[in-house]
Amino acid sequence: MPVLLLLVCLGSTLFMTGLIWLVQLVHYPLLSEVSPGAFGRYHAEHVRRIGPIVAPAMLAELISAGGLVVAPPSGTPNWLALAGLIVAIMTWVVTAMVQVPLHHRLASGFDPVACRSLVRSNWIRTVLWSVHAGIVLAMASLAMN
């Protein structure tokens, strides 16, 4: 069971890490290039389409990170699993407290301040997912030795 948890956490975390870097460097900066007349529809489609992609991966990451605290793989320290869970929880908190409200602001139309805030604040999630990827990769390396 611990190895399965590790594989699920590794896969979902690496998926989200790659996705967040794409969103951070490509997708969010391009929001300001959408014409104001098309922005509302574009943003609504972004939200509709991205949800089914990120929700299962984020949920799998969080649940498996919690499971690794309870049942860490052999050879991995519990503190490393706990650090991973804390970082995963932090991504959920930042998403709920910062990114979601900014997307709600953008749902009513283009707002250059909200767009800039979305890009700047998303660096927090980009760093958090990158850190979690490093933690889970370290756990996998330790578990394989």
Rank of each mutant, 00 (worst) to 15 (best):
G37Y: 00
T91H: 15
I86Y: 04
M139T: 02
P73C: 14
Y42P: 03
A38Y: 00
V131M: 01
V136D: 01
I63Q: 03
C115T: 15
G75R: 10
L6G: 08
A57C: 07
W79S: 09
A83S: 05
V34H: 02
I86L: 14
H43R: 08
L68Q: 07
L142H: 12
G67K: 07
A81L: 09
V70Q: 14
I135G: 04
S130V: 15
T17F: 13
H46G: 00
V113M: 15
F39H: 01
A133I: 00
L31S: 10
R49A: 11
I124W: 13
M1A: 15
P101A: 05
V54W: 05
A114P: 04
A44Q: 14
V131Q: 01
L68Y: 04
T13W: 07
L137D: 10
S141K: 05
A44H: 10
A60E: 02
L4S: 14
S12V: 08
A133C: 01
A55G: 04
L85H: 09
M1K: 15
Q99F: 08
G11Y: 05
S74M: 08
T95G: 11
P2K: 05
V70N: 07
T13K: 05
R49G: 10
S108G: 11
G66V: 08
R41A: 15
L25D: 06
L128C: 08
L30I: 04
V47D: 11
E45P: 01
V3K: 05
G109S: 02
A44Y: 00
L62K: 04
M139F: 03
R48P: 09
L10Y: 01
Y28W: 02
R116S: 13
P56H: 08
R105G: 06
G51S: 09
M16S: 01
V69C: 14
P72A: 10
R49S: 11
L102K: 06
N78R: 15
L22C: 10
G109K: 01
A83Y: 00
P73Y: 12
H103V: 02
L6M: 11
I135C: 09
A60M: 13
I50E: 09
A60F: 13
I86T: 14
G109P: 02
L6F: 10
D111E: 11
P77Q: 05
P29W: 02
T95V: 12
S35I: 04
L62D: 02
A71V: 09
G37T: 08
A107K: 10
H27V: 10
L118I: 13
R105Q: 14
S121E: 07
M58H: 13
S121V: 04
V113R: 15
M58K: 11
A60C: 13
S64W: 06
G51E: 06
V23C: 10
S117H: 05
G18S: 08
L128H: 06
L14V: 04
V26G: 11
L22K: 09
C115G: 12
G66A: 10
G51H: 03
W123D: 04
M1S: 14
E61S: 12
G51V: 04
Q24F: 00
I63C: 11
S117C: 07
L62G: 02
L118Q: 14
V69F: 13
P29H: 04
T126D: 02
A96P: 06
L137I: 15
V113F: 07
S64L: 14
A88C: 09
I50P: 02
L102S: 13
I124T: 15
N78I: 05
V23G: 05
Q24S: 03
V70I: 15
P112W: 06
T76L: 13
I63P: 03
V3E: 09
I53C: 07
L85M: 13
L22Y: 09
